[in-house]
C-alpha cells in the first residue's frame, strides 16, 4: 500500500466518522426540523390566519413589508440600535465579572452564586423590581443619583419612560443577567494551562500583564462564541421589552421580534409574520457570516502547531 492511498483512505474514513459523530444532530435536523422550517417558509408566501387554510399570495407579504409598512422599518431600526450597543457591552461586563470572580479568595463560591442569582429569579419578580428601581419619580436609582443631579443642575433621568433613554435602560437591565455569559467565561478560564501563568510569573509578570497576554487571548474562543450568540440573540430581542415597556414609550422599544410576535398573535397574520421571520433569518445570516471572519483573530490552543 502506497502512502498516498493510505492518506486518502484516512481522509475518507475521517469524512465518514465526521458524519457519524454529527449524525444524531443531523438526523434531528432533517427528520424533525425540516417540516416545520419548510412550512414556515411556505406560510410566508400565503395569507394565513391560523384558523382557515392558507391562501397563496406570492411575494405580496415581502413586497408590503419593504414598501408600505412604517413599523417594519421603525422596529428594525430599534433592533439595530439595540444590537450595536448591547452586544459589545454584554461582552465587556461578562468578561469583567468573570475576571473579578476568578480570584482565589475565600467564599468565592458564594459570591459567584449570588452574582448568578438574577438568572434564576422569577421573571415577574425581576420585572416588578426593575420598574420600581428605575421609576423616574420615586425609584431607588434616581434617589441615589439625586446629589449628582443637583450638582449638575439637571433634570432627573426618565429611564424607561423617556423615549431617548428607554432602549439603553432595557440594555442596562439586561446586564443584570450577565451572570449567564460569566459562567461560560469562567469555564473557559479553567482551560488555560497553569504552566503558562507559572512561566509568566517567573518572568515577573503581574496580574495585569498575565490578564492581557494570557487570559484574554486564550478566552477569545468563548468571547467569539458570546459575540456570535449575542448577535443572533440580540436581533431577536423581545421578552424584556414585552414585559417592561410594552414596546413604548412612543414605540421606542418596539423591536423587530416584538412586531413579528404582534403580527402573529394580535393581527393573526401568520403569513406576514413568517415573511418577517425569513427576512430576519437572511439578515442575521449575512451579518453572522461577516462576523465569522473574525474567527481568524481567535486563538485556539488546539490549532497551534
Amino acid at each position: 500500500m502506497s502512502k498516498a492511498t493510505t492518506v486518502t483512505k484516512l481522509k475518507k474514513q475521517e469524512n465518514l466518522i465526521g458524519y457519524l459523530f454529527a449524525s444524531p444532530w443531523l438526523f434531528g435536523l432533517i427528520v424533525l426540523g425540516i417540516f416545520p422550517i419548510f412550512m414556515s417558509l411556505f406560510f410566508s408566501f400565503t395569507n394565513y390566519n391560523m384558523i382557515s387554510a392558507p391562501t397563496i399570495v406570492g411575494f405580496k407579504n415581502y413586497e408590503i413589508l419593504f414598501t408600505n409598512d412604517d413599523l417594519f422599518w421603525k422596529s428594525l431600526g430599534n433592533t439595530i440600535y439595540h444590537v450595536v450597543i448591547a452586544v459589545p457591552l454584554g461582552i465587556v461586563v461578562g468578561v469583567g465579572l468573570a475576571l473579578l470572580l476568578n480570584n482565589k479568595i475565600r467564599g468565592m463560591g458564594v459570591y459567584r452564586t449570588l452574582f448568578y442569582l438574577p438568572n434564576v429569579v422569577s421573571v415577574v419578580a425581576m420585572t416588578l423590581l426593575w420598574l420600581w428601581l428605575f421609576q423616574p419619580n420615586f425609584g431607588l436609582i434616581n434617589e441615589l443619583f439625586k446629589p449628582l443631579y443637583d450638582l449638575f443642575d439637571m433634570e432627573p433621568l426618565g429611564w424607561y419612560l423617556d423615549q431617548k433613554l428607554s432602549k439603553l435602560t432595557l440594555i442596562l437591565m439586561g446586564l443584570w443577567t450577565a451572570g449567564g455569559s460569566m459562567v461560560i467565561y469562567l469555564a473557559a478560564m479553567q482551560d488555560i494551562p497553569v504552566t503558562l501563568y507559572e512561566s509568566a510569573e517567573i518572568d515577573g509578570a503581574g496580574w495585569l500583564k498575565k490578564t492581557i497576554y494570557i487570559t484574554l487571548p486564550l478566552m477569545t474562543p468563548s468571547i467569539f462564541f458570546n459575540f456570535i450568540m449575542g448577535l443572533i440573540g440580540s436581533f431577536q430581542v423581545f421578552t424584556i421589552a414585552y414585559i417592561m415597556t410594552s414596546g413604548g414609550p412612543s414605540r421606542s422599544t418596539y423591536y423587530y421580534a416584538y412586531y413579528l410576535f404582534d403580527k402573529m398573535m394580535i393581527d393573526k397574520a401568520m403569513g406576514m409574520a413568517s415573511a418577517m421571520a425569513w427576512i430576519l433569518l437572511v439578515m442575521v445570516l449575512i451579518v453572522t457570516i461577516f462576523a465569522l471572519r473574525l474567527n481568524k483573530y481567535v486563538f485556539y490552543l488546539g490549532d497551534e502547531s
Binding site: 410594552s246 414596546g247 413604548g248 404582534d262
Partner: peptide, 16 residues
C-alpha cells in the same frame, strides 16, 4: 385588518 385597534394599534399614539 386591526383586531387590536383599541389596544396595540392605538396605545402608542394615545400615550404620546
Amino acid at each position: 385588518y386591526a383586531p387590536s385597534w383599541h389596544g396595540n394599534d392605538w396605545q402608542p399614539y394615545y400615550s404620546q
